[in-house]
Simulated scan of single mutants.
Amino acid sequence: MNAIPWGDLALNLLAVTLAVVIFVGLIMAAAIRLKNQSIIDIFWGPGFVLAAIVSYLMSIGGDGNDTRRLVVLLLTAIWGLRLGLYIGNRNRGHGEDRRYTSMMRQRKSGSLIVFLVRRIYGMQGALIVVVSLPVQFAMYQERSIGVIGSIGIVLWAIGLFFEAVGDWQLARFKSDPSNAGKIMDRGLWGWTRHPNYFGDSVVWVGLFLLALGAPWGVVAIVSPIIMTKLLLSFSGKAVLERGMRRSRGEAYDVYVASTSGFFPMPPKRSRADV
């Protein structure tokens, strides 16, 4: 059993935290200038890429397995950059997201920067640091990837498939004017109402498994737990479904009744089909 590299992990966490603070601070400055706080969404994925790059560089010359380090860096970069490019392309020309506009209306007085740090950027930065723990820990695991790590890579690939294909299918559906006002219930969206969120969760389970080169890596389980909780209860599924119920009404209720809310499952038959 390899000893826990407390010193290396502490220095790595400090370096990642400092890098993320600077990164998020620059985004906040740009958002204030552009009067569009929703640009932070574009940089959510790339923020994890930054954490992976810093961790990779910090771990050079250490005892971490080189193959594991490189694989984790590449997997995180592919996931984070794809997500950033997708959201950037999706949001182009649409102005500030109404969620952030509503949040900004809640500011009555006081420092704008303090308000933004408390309500948006502080939390976003903290989440990047904490959720990226598997990526940070994996850089200091001495063992080769092995069976558990290989399972992690497979899960990461499955997750990326659901996330990327789900996003592509939805974008293609929305690009067709004849689908205006309709509910996307085809492809992966016929098996789960949120293939992209499900895929995101599975990606981080896979990265967590890649941090299990030694028993102390189990601490990083907080990462997929927090990510899944966010996707289900906070910024993801819960918020989106409230909006869909308001805008689509009964049609969305029918979709909910026939389609799994998260884990992919065969669509249920509607009463009309029985």
Results as ranks from 00 to 15, higher is better:
G125Y: 00
S223V: 00
M104Q: 10
S150T: 06
T101M: 05
G146E: 10
T228E: 14
L133H: 02
S109M: 02
R33I: 10
L83G: 06
A126V: 04
A51T: 05
V202T: 02
S144F: 13
R269E: 04
D185C: 11
V254I: 14
I151D: 08
R92Q: 14
G7V: 05
S178V: 13
V20H: 01
S223Q: 07
W204T: 01
S111C: 07
I226E: 11
A3C: 06
R143F: 08
W44D: 00
I87W: 02
V16P: 00
L212C: 12
R33S: 09
K182D: 14
N196Y: 00
L85N: 05
Q124V: 11
R118A: 13
A238E: 10
T17D: 03
A214K: 05
L232Q: 06
S247T: 14
L160D: 12
T76C: 11
I158V: 08
E241R: 04
R186S: 15
I32L: 15
S201D: 13
G181Y: 03
G199Q: 11
Q106E: 12
V20E: 03
W79G: 08
G45F: 14
K35C: 07
F137M: 06
R68H: 07
P215G: 08
Q136W: 00
F48A: 07
E241F: 09
R105H: 14
D253C: 03
I120S: 12
L160N: 09
G61Y: 05
V49A: 12
G84P: 00
R99P: 10
S132Q: 11
G166A: 06
T259H: 02
G206H: 01
R248H: 13
S38C: 12
L57M: 13
W216K: 01
A214S: 15
S111E: 03
D8Q: 14
G152H: 00
L170F: 14
T192H: 07
R92W: 14
V154T: 12
R90G: 00
L50H: 06
G243C: 11
L207Y: 10
N36Y: 06
L75I: 03
A211C: 09
M123L: 14
F198I: 08
I225C: 05
I225M: 04
G261W: 09
W168G: 04
L70V: 08
G84C: 00
S223E: 05
V205E: 04
I87S: 03
L112Q: 13
I4W: 05
R245C: 02
V147W: 12
N89R: 15
Y56E: 01
L230W: 08
I145N: 09
F208P: 05
G88E: 13
N2Q: 15
R92N: 13
F234N: 03
W44R: 01
I183L: 04
L85R: 02
Q169L: 00
N179Y: 00
P264Q: 09
R90Q: 04
V117W: 13
L13M: 15
G61W: 01
I151F: 10
Y121F: 13
D253R: 15
P215Q: 06
P267Q: 01
L231D: 07
R186D: 15
D41H: 14
E96C: 01
L70W: 10
R246Q: 13
G95I: 08
L74G: 06
A272Y: 10
I221C: 07
T101Y: 01
R193E: 04
L26D: 05
F161G: 07
G152T: 03
R107I: 07
I60K: 12
R105V: 10
G7C: 09
I183F: 01
K268H: 12
V131T: 12
M184H: 09
